[in-house]
């Protein structure tokens, strides 16, 4: 008993109240009901993969494991995207998953090292139709009307709110603006780094204040796994990508999915080259995803939604930790 008293602390308690966890369970059932009614199949894919996300903006966790192949490095998935796309290539049809995902270093009021990603794919569905479905899912989980849905072009947000153009304003001017708004040196920053900072600090907090804000037409350099196309209005190369914001929180990120294996392989290689240039560790490319794309993945759209954030907003909490049984500081 003396030993026990010496080591007893209060941080064994859950981060969320038990009442919140009961409400969370009800909202998870709501999500499953939403997709069941729409004929979207629930799937479960591995948390560990031989390949990981090469995205320069994501830091992956990995571990060593003994498998029939011997001692191998396996990557904790930053989202279930690769495995789900292999299912699409195998002919699964529309699928969804509530997947535990891992991103190193991401801990804060709106982040947790591991979190629940609600990700779904709609073969044959255009991006606009997926935006509508994403809004419907958000409304169903919130259980209330979040207000009007507005659509913003990425370019329009920067022009109207900051008076700069993400595509044409000279880099030097973007660096000066980012440095001034952030209070830090941006002399070496890339165009995307400047845009990320301005979006995160200046634009995001204004989004979703009295409705759902959907941002579309991201710069082609931020396509990640989305198809690129020329904007019919102004001829700029943009990514077929959208994000949904509510109360200043980025809730969902959707793509007109890239299905071209060669293009995908080139982007993985570019990512790893950029990683080398920045002194970041390279990530093993998922060759099985490339093989699946080569075999043929149906065109369509997909979206990843931060389920903990949506539950946080539905329950009126101030942080994701408050809707998790044990957030990272207490894991």
């Amino acid at each position: 008993m003396v030993f026990l008293e010496a080591v007893m602390t209060n941080d064994w308690h859950p981060s969320a109240s038990l009442e919140t966890l009961r409400q969370r369970a009800r909202l998870l059932a709501e999500v499953r009901g939403f997709f069941a009614a729409r004929g979207v199949l629930e799937v479960e894919t591995p948390v560990l993969g031989h390949g990981g996300s090469t995205d320069v903006g994501l830091a992956s966790l990995s571990c060593e494991a003994t498998t029939p192949e011997g001692r191998e490095r396996l990557w904790l998935q930053t989202s279930p995207e690769f495995a789900m796309k292999r299912l699409l290539a195998a002919g699964a049809g529309p699928i969804y998953q509530i997947a535990r995902s891992f991103r190193d270093g991401e801990v804060g009021r709106r982040h947790n090292l591991e979190f629940s990603m609600l990700e779904w794919y709609r073969p044959g569905l255009a991006l606009d139709a997926l935006i509508e479905e994403t809004v419907a899912l958000i409304q169903a989980v919130l259980g209330r009307d979040p207000g009007p849905v507005r659509r913003w072009r990425y370019r329009q947000l920067f022009r109207e709110q900051l008076g700069v153009d993400p595509f044409t304003t000279p880099l030097g001017e973007l660096r000066r603006l980012a440095a001034a708004r952030g209070g830090l040196s941006m002399d070496e920053a890339s165009r995307d780094d400047c845009l990320d900072l301005l979006l995160s600090l200046e634009i995001e907090p204004t989004l979703g204040r009295d409705g759902l804000d959907v941002v579309v037409d991201y710069p082609a350099s931020q396509a990640a796994l989305a198809r690129r196309h020329r904007d019919p209005e102004d001829g700029e190369w943009v990514a077929g990508r959208f994000e949904v914001y509510l109360q200043g929180l980025e809730l969902a990120n959707g793509y007109d999915e890239l299905t071209d294996a060669a293009e995908q392989a080139a982007r993985f290689a570019e990512d790893n080259a950029a990683r080398r240039a920045r002194g970041l560790p390279e990530v093993t490319v998922d060759r099985r995803l490339l093989d699946a794309l080569a075999a043929g993945m149906p065109a369509g759209s997909g979206v990843a939604l931060g389920l903990d954030r949506l539950i946080q907003l539905a329950l009126g909490k101030a942080s994701v930790a408050e809707v998790m049984a044990f957030a990272t500081p207490r894991c």
Binding site: G108, R110, H111, G182, S200, A304
Partner: peptide, 15 residues
Amino acid sequence: ENEYVKPGKGQAFNR
């Protein structure tokens, strides 16, 4: 206070 700020994919900052 230290707030971690990050677009889903992109440079992370601490405010």
